[in-house]
Design a protein around this nucleic acid. Sequence first.
DNA 1: TTGTAGGCGTTATCAT
DNA 2: ATGATAACGCCTACAA
Lengths: 338, 338
Amino acid sequence: MNIGEIARRSGVSRSTVSYALSGKRAVSEATRQRIQAVIDELGYRPNAAARALKEGRTRTLGLVVPPTRRRLTFMQLEFVASVMEAADRADLDLLLSPSRDDHDRSFERIVGGRRVDGLILMEIRLDDPRVTRLQGLRLPFVTIGRTARPQGTCWIDVDYATLIDRCVNHLADLGHRHIALINRSAELIASGYGPAHRAREGFADAVARRGVEGVEFCCADDAAAGETCVQEILRAHPEVTAITTINEAALPGIQRALEDAGLNIPARFSVAGVAARYWAEQFHPQLTAADVPAVDMGATAVDFLVERVTDPDAPPRQHLFVPPISLRNSTGPAPAPR
Amino acid sequence: MNIGEIARRSGVSRSTVSYALSGKRAVSEATRQRIQAVIDELGYRPNAAARALKEGRTRTLGLVVPPTRRRLTFMQLEFVASVMEAADRADLDLLLSPSRDDHDRSFERIVGGRRVDGLILMEIRLDDPRVTRLQGLRLPFVTIGRTARPQGTCWIDVDYATLIDRCVNHLADLGHRHIALINRSAELIASGYGPAHRAREGFADAVARRGVEGVEFCCADDAAAGETCVQEILRAHPEVTAITTINEAALPGIQRALEDAGLNIPARFSVAGVAARYWAEQFHPQLTAADVPAVDMGATAVDFLVERVTDPDAPPRQHLFVPPISLRNSTGPAPAPR
DNA sequence: TTGTAGGCGTTATCAT
DNA sequence: ATGATAACGCCTACAA
């Protein structure tokens, strides 16, 4: 079914059908209704490819997600879902692209083929080839996370440095003197993953400022790694009484290792982190954590992107989310030294 | 950058460029190389909209996911990720559509606008309006789950009836005489959600065949509901010593409620279910469960769909996954009656 | 108030 | 081995 057929059956020209639909030119009420009746009967909708070709825009947004060989974290998944819903609300379609860098096939297809009006890039690195590529093409984009030099780009991010800082302060306030940071994987850090770097910096600063001892451990994004990591911490640093972490996926393992070591939370050991709310509440006991507002972030990312698509010359917007720490039941006063 | 510009700079016609790229007509090696050099220099890729318009296909697949007001389960998320990767391997783009029925805006846009060559529909109901709609349009699709009359359609599904049957048998073999099924939510069942109905049937059959007592409970898809549900079971049916479930999202709550009731797993209480492997392993102790092969399912769905797109007249393929039950640590002999 | 016609970038048919 | 040209379906400037 195409616009010509609708025109024929309504006894008008194709342009009249087009204008009746778009409202960009006056169409007599009688004609409009006649056309509408035909459209309703045949269930016509404009062909998206033809329209995209003519208009030079696709009404489609792209969401670039990290390939899932390494599983997505819960907050990443929540973010994807919320982007999907936000795009839907804006009547935009969403194209998913599993790409880590600018030569990945999916990225090539979407960007090179002009498949989208704009892109949201997840898990951005401090120095990310996709960003420079998109800048060169003048294709609007929003990054989740900042590059090392984020001034001229449009981004949203979570202020991991401040959040870990707050966790350390909270733990120090409770009397903990030996605190471990469970960061994300060594590979991720080596690849220049911002949150991990900024968590490290926030931790180092806070620890220094509060005059407590801090040790940092890298940990892969899964429960088993979390378990091993905690065992390692307990072995190498038995004086540690509190853990802070941005490694959400490791949480179940952290919990299990502490349990198996007979360290009750929060009586004998405290844990405070950064996690999706849902995940924090799965922890047992529920985790005192900065709840990453994944749903807000998705909506904001889409907002920003739509603005850049609509008005490419406006200054790029940026937003740093600093969610408050929700006090739950996983932190308590440091245990008396044995 | 378009094909005309490449043609001009290579000193050939547009058709030659097109043929050099597609290989559908012989092009002299010299010309081919000259064209390729220009393409490499300018980074040309064919415009997807123009190509889709001309070819009548979009090289894009659609994945219809349930809107996330109710959060996606882990196995659904794994499935989405695996579809994404499988589509990427097939050099197809993936459009995500959050739609529950055939009038949802996103579904309308994608289907009406001919945005995709085929669709994968998640969380299909026994009587699903989207299916009839797509059949009428002759748009290829694969459903995850079967409708009530699945003969002529292409689908993949998990055999929940058999899996729950096996769980019940396993528990009965261990001496359990009073077994509860924690199903999914009452609303989902009311809406005609197949897995919940088939789990119910499988449970009723197995319980009858083994001559044990079975009680069924509905439970929303979250940990809190799981916790409440177990408390309710323990209160109303204190004789129950084992639970079987397809409600993955309720697992953390099930675990917590049993723990809080002082019922050690598996010494005092057994649990066997159907879940994503990752999730089964998060359970404590690790859950004896049929591991839903979400990754295989995603790949299979894409395979089937590509086949239907390529060859619409071939008989629609179907596959019922019956993953084996992985024995882990959450089931044991029924406790001696008190 | 409505119709005609051109062009968006491709692919493919027909001609050379 | 290559070129000219039509057509995919839509939108919109121009004409009436």
